[in-house]
Design a binder for these strands. Structure first.
Lengths: 153, 153
DNA sequence: AAATTATATAGAAAAATATTCTTTTATTAT
DNA sequence: ATAATAAAAGAATATTTTTCTATATAATTT
């Protein structure tokens, strides 16, 4: 789908705050409410707008410990890879799992309550998945920036 | 703020789909629309619900290349650290910046159009920030999982 | 170039939802 | 038990979303 400058401006706004009313968006972009409505519907139908989510404060919900976890598989046969990816995606503590280039095969973002919960997670959940060769964890000391928005220019 | 099981169930639902109507949420949780409305307002006012955002398909908007980028600072004096963090947070290509434990100081998530755009970003934007010692980049081959939701049980 | 088709926009009307208000119910403390 | 507090339900109101109709704009065909 082709995105014109208005679509991009609209997406930028919705990525910052998806609860703005069409009226507010219409005012900002100097268009009618209907025009905004139709454009959003089109962006939704074409899969440009994938989903709308609420973001929760990690501290307040007592999940204030994040770690990035490198994982190397013991073997790389297709079946093992598929199995590993399926299992790891199921774990709610794993917010992200990326297959990456470099020394390790995967990079995971893990969010839990505290260091103790992380240890618990490693011992009982992650490393109990079959075919994991080795792991290497980095702990988040401070979150400098954490956004979901892509700048569309 | 104390979260009871209904609050947690509500947060889990809103983290998956924040566009559900209060009516739909009320039906799922077997409560009245008003009860849902009041709870959401309270969660917003107490900072539990931080913001509502639209998620955009990276492929469709032509930003289908992600990299994780390790950064080591040349010096760690307070001023340099503050300056670096401020500068890097400004870059729209940097969706995340975490101060982490381990061999490197920071881990960045960078999202751009393609490898060429990444090179451009590294040369002209990232490494032009003062006080960067060294960098090490890992490219995302495949995104196995990418979620923003914390499971509240 | 004129006519035609498709596409986007605007404004008004209708439908659905969010929000407020009042009453009721449940919970907690005295 | 009784009073005070907080949460919930239902009805009333205000907003918003969505649909509908009309108009303008752009692209396409003849």
């Amino acid at each position: 789908m082709e995105l014109d400058p208005i679509d991009k401006a609209l997406l930028n706004l919705l990525q910052q705050d998806s609860k703005q009313t069409n009226k507010a968006l219409a005012y900002r972009l100097d268009m009618s409410v209907t025009a905004i409505f139709e454009r959003i519907k089109k962006l939704e139908n074409n899969g440009v707008l994938k989903k709308y989510v609420a973001l929760v404060d990690h501290k307040v919900v007592d999940k204030n410990f994040s770690a990035f976890c490198h994982i190397k598989l013991a073997q790389h046969s297709r079946d093992f890879v598929v199995k590993f990816e399926k299992e790891v995606a199921k774990l709610p503590e794993v917010l992200e799992c990326h297959h990456i280039s470099g020394d390790y095969d995967y990079l995971l973002k893990v969010v839990v309550k505290d260091m103790e919960a992380f240890r618990e997670f490693m011992v009982n959940k992650l490393t109990s998945i079959q075919h994991i060769g080795s792991t290497h964890s980095m702990f988040v000391i401070n979150e400098v920036k954490n956004s979901t928005a892509l700048e569309l220019a």
